[in-house]
Simulated assay, not measured.
Amino acid sequence: MRSLKTFCVYVLLVAGGVISIYPLVYMLLTALKPMTLLFEFPPRFLPSEMTWSNFREAWGSQNFALYLLNSVGVTLASFALIFLLSSMLAFAYSRFDFKGKGLSFAIIMGGLVIPSLTLLIPQFVLIRQLGLFDSRWGLIVVYAAGAIPFTTFLLKGFFDSISRDIDESVEMEGGGAWTLFASIILPLSKPAFVPATIFNALTVWEEFPWALTIINDPLKRTLPIALANFQGQYTTQWGIVFAGSLIAVLPIILLFLLLQRYFIAGITAGAVKG
């Protein structure tokens, strides 16, 4: 009976893996097809002829390389701002008691349930008033603000699991709150940063509506806009679209592969420690 249960679990896992990876395989095979074979009938899963021309054309058109660099810069800057603010917020809510703590934390967590598209107009007005319209900082500030609630929630859960005895030890050694935060809490919380890194990087990397709304200068646009530009009004070269999409998703896949062994541990660490 136990063997049958194990077999069923593995069958479900394999089926789930196949379903998850199929879109990427289909994209790759389509990107390798010449334009003349994209709409052949009957369709073939494995192309009879392969070419790398779609990848070369995707990389060399629509300012693709420039948009890729813009996305890298915006993602890294957003990442730095998110973790600077979120880690300090999480530390304050985890280690200090102050008036309005519960209410203010509930307000921050309320940001988790607000759809981002509903904030498009007020964000647009605010960014114009701040003089950040048509600038990369207009992207970075909004991306960071949108990611702070989730990141704060995740880090606070891990900070809460760290024993308060450490706080007393630091205090006895003459250290203050900053010493506790920078020298103790942050180094111990590395597992919690891994899932936050993956989620935030994915969110910023693939964001499209806000980038399309605020950026007019073609030299400042990010990668999702380059992918949208591959789709024509009347015809679309799907081989180039899929080739560009694969290039765009490759950095996120590599990031996940590098951090995957820490991913589940980081998600569950705050719940099982202490």
Rank of each mutant, 00 (worst) to 15 (best):
I264S: 08
A271N: 11
I166K: 06
A228L: 10
T222L: 02
I185P: 00
G176L: 09
Q260F: 05
W205K: 04
I253P: 01
P195H: 07
L186G: 03
D217H: 10
T197P: 01
W205H: 03
L227D: 02
W205M: 06
P195I: 05
W238I: 06
T203I: 07
L188T: 07
I184T: 07
Q260S: 12
F193D: 00
P195L: 08
G174P: 04
L227P: 00
L257F: 14
I264W: 05
I166H: 10
G175P: 01
L212V: 08
A182K: 13
T203L: 11
K190Q: 14
A182I: 05
P195D: 06
L257G: 08
A211F: 06
T179V: 11
V249A: 14
R261H: 08
I215V: 15
L250K: 07
A201W: 00
T179P: 00
V272D: 08
Y262Q: 15
V272Y: 11
Q237G: 08
L212F: 14
P209G: 04
F193C: 01
S245R: 07
E206K: 14
V170H: 06
G239A: 10
L180Q: 07
E173R: 03
A201D: 02
E168V: 13
I225L: 14
V170C: 06
F256Q: 06
N229P: 00
V170E: 01
F199H: 11
E206P: 00
L255I: 09
D217T: 15
L254F: 14
P218G: 11
I252Q: 09
L246Y: 07
G232W: 09
I247H: 04
V272T: 14
A228I: 09
F199S: 12
D167Y: 03
S169E: 10
E173S: 11
L219T: 15
L259P: 01
D165V: 08
T222K: 05
I267K: 06
L202M: 15
T236R: 13
D167F: 03
P251T: 10
T268M: 14
V272H: 10
A228T: 07
F230R: 02
G176Y: 11
I214H: 01
A201V: 11
F193E: 00
F199L: 15
R261Y: 04
I215M: 12
L259G: 05
L223W: 03
V272K: 10
W178H: 05
D165F: 07
L254N: 07
S183V: 12
W210V: 00
A243T: 09
K220Y: 09
S163E: 12
P218Q: 12
Q237Y: 13
T235Q: 14
G175S: 07
T236V: 15
N229H: 13
P187V: 05
